[in-house]
Amino acid sequence: MAGRSRKYRVLIGKPGLDGHDRGAKILARALRDAGFEAVYTGIRRTADEIAAAAVQEDVSAVGLSSLSGAHLRLFPAVVEALKQRGAGDIPVLGGGVIPDEDLAALKQAGIVEVYTPGTPLAQVVEAFENACDRHQKGRSGK
């Protein structure tokens, strides 16, 4: 459409009990400043709540943050919950205090990208851009 490019909608969620939301909020703001529409869920959400919100908001990507070391349980649970709701096509990205050695397991479980502290925001934003691009292409392909 001329005059208006499509906006990417994304959802930032905090699964589990970890209340440190500085990273999640900074990311949501950075995404806003990069032109995304970023929905934020607040802290202490279950995987299922995050998935349900992602469906209602029709987002093109979900970002998760956890700093409590529970990522191996919580992130895959969100991927699973999205599938359950027929939204397995929505890519999930993760971030937090995550040791390198967990990366393989998370990728295996369907998390498309994982970021640890110190990653430049621009790089994370770009990953969202790419994930949304691929998601949109997949959609229009169908």
Partner: peptide, 27 residues
């Protein structure tokens, strides 16, 4: 930037699993 931070939903999350509550954020 044209982007938006959509935060109203935070306060309504207790209804997230209720299929008869539909919340949609819009910029």
């Amino acid at each position: 930037s044209g982007g938006a931070f959509l935060g109203d939903r935070i306060r309504m999350m207790r209804h997230a699993l209720d299929s008869d509550v539909i919340v949609r954020s819009m910029a």
